[in-house]
């Protein structure tokens, strides 16, 4: 049952696949507040969408269909990197004024001197055997967890940094002497790391 047919059925304009009553049942969450029959219901800015994503080797897809009007979109991409999906969703949502689908987090980047940046560098113990290294290269700051790929950090103020992809926020905490003693990593919850070197 495609998305458009579900929207028409929900408005009682088509009963070719399911009638309106069955479509309402299908689009009603029953496991939790999101999971319905074969689709997820997202409440975005007081607009409800049924949506689902799909992933296979070298292929990613995402669709949204509004429960309240005929708005909807389908994106299919030959890639294994889904980062571009939200960029396209943002563009479509902005041009066609789809409520709630445009998502962005805005930061204001500030410039910090090399001396100031140097103070944040070091190794931070995030857990047993797990060290987060903060380093600088050519006036840029990077974070590297264990042997993972390093990600660039941008300063949004003294002691506060963020990364774009993935979106991680890091706050450095100083003691009474002004020395950095730990950091707080905000990514799916806040994780604390004591400075060890």
């Amino acid at each position: 049952m495609n998305g458009q047919r579900a929207q028409l059925s929900l408005q009682d304009k088509s009963n070719k696949v399911l009638n309106q009553e069955m479509t309402k049942i299908r689009l009603t969450p029953y496991i939790d507040q999101s999971a319905a029959l074969g689709v997820f219901i997202d409440n975005r800015d007081r607009t409800k969408y049924f949506q689902h994503s799909g992933v296979d080797e070298g292929f990613i897809t995402q669709y949204y269909g509004s429960l309240e009007d005929g708005n909807g979109l389908i994106i299919m991409i030959n890639t294994s990197n889904g980062t571009i999906i939200q960029e396209i969703v943002n563009s479509i949502a902005k041009v066609y004024e789809f409520k709630g689908l445009y998502y962005s987090k805005q930061y204001k980047v500030v410039s910090l001197s090399d001396d100031v940046l140097q103070a944040y560098t070091g190794r931070y113990q995030m857990g047993p055997g797990l060290v987060l290294t903060i380093l600088t290269e050519d006036h840029h700051v990077f974070a590297q967890l264990g042997r993972q790929k390093k990600i660039e950090l941008f300063a949004e103020g003294n002691n506060k940094f963020f990364s774009k992809e993935p979106n991680v926020e890091i706050e450095f905490i100083r003691n009474n002497k002004g020395e950095i003693v730990k950091l707080l990593v905000n990514e799916d919850g806040v994780h604390e790391g004591q400075k060890i070197k």
Binding site: Q86, N90, K105, F154
Partner: peptide, 28 residues
């Protein structure tokens, strides 16, 4: 436009972003 934006962020062209992410084909 990416979900994480900095002040004054300019919008991207889809072909540029597809090249950036090594995407061969897309359909919307």
């Amino acid at each position: 436009l990416p979900p994480v934006q900095t002040e004054g962020q300019a919008a991207y062209n889809i072909n540029d972003r597809m090249a950036f992410y090594h995407v061969k084909h897309s359909r919307c």
